[in-house]
């Protein structure tokens, strides 16, 4: 029995809300962890403002390990942690946990590369005025890297969105879950297609908005 248009739309709407919920909560949480870690990676780099080889290498190692585990494996591997935190391993709230664990190191690297773009001359000038490391981070590095950080955020949020769709394989909720259940398991290609189209649309929207917002915030543009 095939689904009516109305049924598909109803499914789509609930999937959309779940997907947005997972994506936004995960991105926010992943930034809370990833932003400071990214800053720390830049600051402790050998060319950074407070070089610390041991710290830099250890953080870099953990970040690389987490980055190299395929998300679908991470999803299953962290289930005990997920259960401990959320109480279940099924549904969109449960998916947030592996999403944050996968996205935080990714964001840390994005933040690192954005902050490394800040002109060394400006950092030197700040030193010449007697700025502390914390002042340089808060008043120079982050504000000067803002347009690049925002663009990185747009890329990160779309990556997290596509990860969230993958969580559908383990009953993670959202558009990806519906696409897999109806399309792959039940052979309802039309349902799958609708979900995929919506996913594509959200990615486009996030990316376009991110680009626009980054440009709007960039004072280097005349």
């Amino acid at each position: 029995m095939s689904l009516t248009f109305q049924q598909i739309m109803k499914l789509m709407l609930s999937g959309l809300l779940e997907t947005l919920y997972m994506t936004i909560i995960s991105t926010a949480a992943a930034y809370i962890i990833g932003l400071p870690v990214g800053v720390l990676l830049t600051v402790t780099d050998k060319d950074g403002i407070k070089p610390n080889k041991t710290l830099n290498t250890s953080i870099g190692f953990v970040v690389n390990v987490l980055r190299s585990v395929p998300f679908i494996i991470l999803l299953v591997a962290v289930m005990p942690i997920t259960r401990a935190i959320v109480g279940t391993t099924i549904g969109s709230s449960a998916t947030v946990v592996p999403l944050v664990i996968a996205a935080a190191p990714y964001i840390a690297r994005m933040v690192e590369s954005s902050i490394k773009e800040v002109d060394r001359g400006v950092i030197e000038a700040s030193h010449s005025m007697g700025a502390t490391t914390l002042q340089i981070v808060l008043k120079v590095l982050i504000p000067e890297a803002k347009p690049s950080l925002l663009l990185g955020a747009a890329i990160s949020i779309t990556t997290i969105l596509s990860y969230s769709a993958m969580a559908g394989f383990v009953g993670g909720g959202g558009l990806g879950d519906i696409a897999i259940r109806y399309g792959y398991n039940l052979g309802k290609t039309d349902v799958m297609l609708v979900m995929v189209v919506v996913l594509v649309a959200i990615v486009q929207l996030f990316q376009a908005f991110g680009g626009w917002f980054s440009r709007k915030n960039d004072r280097r543009i005349r």
């Binding site: 002109d119 001359g121 400006v122 030197e124 000038a125 030193h127 010449s128 005025m129 007697g130 700025a131 502390t132 120079v140 504000p143 000067e144 803002k146 347009p147 960039d218 004072r219 280097r220």
Partner: peptide, 22 residues
């Protein structure tokens, strides 16, 4: 102490080194 001392030594550069977002 050095940071404090630097406050009484101004410096200007070839490439200005202004904060571009301010």
């Amino acid at each position: 102490e050095l940071r404090t001392a630097r406050q009484s030594i101004g410096m200007i550069f070839q490439n200005f080194n202004l904060l571009m977002q301010r």
